[in-house]
Simulated assay, not measured.
Amino acid sequence: MTADQSGPLRDVRDRARGPGKTVTTFGPDPYADLKPVLAQFDVGLDHEFLPIPESEGYLTVSVEGRTLGSISAAAFGELRDPDTELPWDAATRESAYRDLVQLLAGTTFVMDDRRHLLATAREIEDRALRRGHGRLYASFQSLSAFRAQVPVYERLVGRTDLRAFVYGAPDWEPPDVEHVTVRLDDADDLVAFWVVAFDGAGDDDAKCAMIAEETAPDEYTGVLTYDPEVVDDLTAYLDAVAA
């Protein structure tokens, strides 16, 4: 794959980047075992001492001195080991890890932990599930990488009015699934990228995307975005790039 071929997606990914953010943990001591998770994101990392039990600590995400949100220490375990299953019951859709990646939207991440990357992609799929209609796009680099996700996408389109468009180099023939359209990446335009995007079903507030490029073996550099213009340009590119 040439740099020119990957250029459009890199440009869209770069446009999705926002201002720098800071993650601050609060408690008696720094949460050292949480640092490898947070270090995957290009953020400032701070700790402020509070004379409280470790279990009562929390972290905040801020930008330019403004606090965007917080996560309690009771949920730190899920940040370290996120659930990669897509929740189907509205009563079980809470996810501390997805809360974190939402707060860090626009922040570059570098991940070699596939579990965290898949959990990040699940944020997009979960938003599409909640909306229940619209167009969901997923580039799995090669179609064989889609094999394990076929049951997920069967259930997504089966339980909703979503339409899914799946991309990949044609190294495997997926089964026919109603409302899932497979688009062959014969020219390898997307082979370096893992992309999941939701068009928001026409609602700018629901548009979202993850754009991640494999920049080293099993290491991805990417960003999560809720910028509607970026998502529109990304989905337009995906509609045009493969038949």
Score class of each variant (00 low, 15 high):
residue 30 P to C: 10
residue 219 E to I: 08
residue 176 D to H: 12
residue 10 R to F: 08
residue 183 R to D: 01
residue 235 T to V: 15
residue 122 R to K: 14
residue 80 R to F: 07
residue 92 T to C: 03
residue 98 R to E: 11
residue 230 V to G: 01
residue 200 G to H: 02
residue 21 K to M: 09
residue 187 A to C: 00
residue 29 D to V: 12
residue 210 M to E: 13
residue 190 L to N: 11
residue 39 A to L: 10
residue 173 E to T: 15
residue 156 L to G: 00
residue 136 L to N: 00
residue 103 L to S: 09
residue 92 T to L: 08
residue 5 Q to M: 15
residue 125 E to A: 07
residue 28 P to Y: 03
residue 40 Q to H: 12
residue 156 L to A: 00
residue 227 D to W: 10
residue 117 L to I: 06
residue 52 I to D: 12
residue 52 I to P: 03
residue 211 I to F: 05
residue 21 K to P: 03
residue 87 P to A: 07
residue 214 E to M: 07
residue 127 R to C: 00
residue 111 M to R: 11
residue 23 V to D: 04
residue 78 E to C: 03
residue 216 A to L: 02
residue 221 T to A: 13
residue 143 L to C: 03
residue 120 T to A: 14
residue 173 E to M: 14
residue 193 F to Q: 04
residue 217 P to R: 12
residue 63 V to W: 04
residue 16 A to T: 05
residue 243 A to E: 13
residue 29 D to A: 14
residue 54 E to I: 11
residue 96 A to N: 11
residue 165 F to W: 04
residue 150 V to K: 09
residue 173 E to P: 07
residue 37 V to I: 03
residue 124 I to Y: 06
residue 77 G to T: 09
residue 145 A to C: 08
residue 187 A to K: 07
residue 225 T to R: 06
residue 73 A to C: 12
residue 14 D to K: 12
residue 123 E to W: 13
residue 13 R to M: 14
residue 216 A to W: 01
residue 192 A to F: 11
residue 162 L to H: 02
residue 165 F to V: 01
residue 151 P to A: 10
residue 164 A to S: 13
residue 33 D to G: 13
residue 19 P to A: 12
residue 219 E to S: 15
residue 237 Y to V: 00
residue 94 E to N: 09
residue 64 E to Y: 12
residue 89 D to V: 05
residue 195 V to I: 15
residue 101 V to R: 02
residue 66 R to S: 14
residue 121 A to W: 09
residue 132 G to W: 04
residue 140 F to C: 06
residue 149 Q to I: 07
residue 93 R to H: 02
residue 132 G to Y: 05
residue 137 Y to Q: 02
residue 61 V to Y: 07
residue 132 G to S: 04
